[in-house]
């Protein structure tokens, strides 16, 4: 009877277990490695910032000149190399720096010096550094610094090919003598200073922005407030025990 039965149709749906074990091993490996890397980056604590010791000989440094806020005799000096068009620098300037100024600079725990480091891929950055340097002529570097970082999206390479009208408006908004500012801006009077600051950064192995140098250590990236405060505290001379 069985011989008269039509042959059974081959079961065409392969069960999951018929796939080779090697395939599952490969998938499992990729999943474990991928999830581990993602998990590590997600749970890594940003507050544990570790600086890299830099080799720097002040004797070979150029005629660089940053822009400083805070007491000149502050026990700790924070040096920042930044690019006005860099989103990471913008994030530090607008989110973290207000806290740094209020709780570290104003109480005199440290001073902060800004050095120009316009990156080549940011086409409007050099012009922005020029605008800020010209504002410094009228003692308003930091006011221009804050306006430039606060409105990065208006004048950056993506937004415009001609950032000058924006800078002119900021110059007027912060109360500069706009005629004097414009003469300085058009003449690129401070380009030498800007390039000297870049050069100074390169001598100190600055490779990205923002980069902070505190003491003899370099900290690349937008550093969180707590991490910066911890670094300043670690370098603050302790009062002698009575």
């Amino acid at each position: 009877m069985a011989a008269n039965n039509p042959p059974k149709k081959k079961n065409v749906v392969r069960s999951a277990s018929s796939r080779p074990t090697g395939f599952y091993v490969a998938l499992g490996l990729v999943a474990v490695v991928g999830a581990s890397i993602l998990g590590y980056t997600l749970t890594r604590k940003p507050a544990t910032v570790v600086g890299t010791e830099i080799k720097y000989d002040p004797a070979t440094s150029g005629p660089s000149q940053g822009y400083t806020i805070g007491k000149p005799d502050a026990p700790v000096k924070i040096l920042e190399w930044a690019d006005f068009e860099c989103p990471g620098c913008g994030q530090f300037a607008t989110v973290t720096e207000p806290d740094v100024r209020k709780r570290i600079i104003e109480p005199g725990l440290a001073s902060l010096t800004f050095y120009d480091f316009p990156l080549p891929q940011h086409k409007n950055s050099k012009a922005a550094h020029n605008a800020a340097a010209c504002a410094a002529d009228q003692n308003k570097f930091w006011e221009m610094h804050d306006r430039l970082f606060g409105s990065q999206d208006q004048w950056n390479t993506v937004a415009t090919d001609n950032p000058k009208p924006f800078f002119e408006k900021y110059a007027s908004d912060i109360g500069l003598d706009t005629k004097a500012w414009e003469t300085c801006y058009d003449a690129q009077r401070h380009m030498g200073r800007i390039l000297a600051n870049v050069n100074e950064g390169e001598k100190r192995q600055v490779g990205s922005t923002p980069t902070f140098i505190v003491g003899n250590k370099s900290y690349p990236g937008s550093i969180p407030y707590d991490a910066l405060k911890a670094i300043v505290d670690s370098l603050t001379p302790k009062p002698a025990a009575k």
């Binding site: 999830a35 890397i37 993602l38 990205s208 923002p210 690349p220």
Partner: peptide, 29 residues
């Protein structure tokens, strides 16, 4: 399929970076 799974993790990393959830915000060439 294995390569696509690896690609999911790479693009997920880029997405989390874009959303500011991971990664160090800094600019270099």
């Amino acid at each position: 399929a294995t390569l696509a799974l690896a690609g999911i993790f790479v693009s997920l990393y880029l997405l989390l970076y874009k959303l500011g959830i991971i990664g160090e915000l800094s600019c270099s060439v």
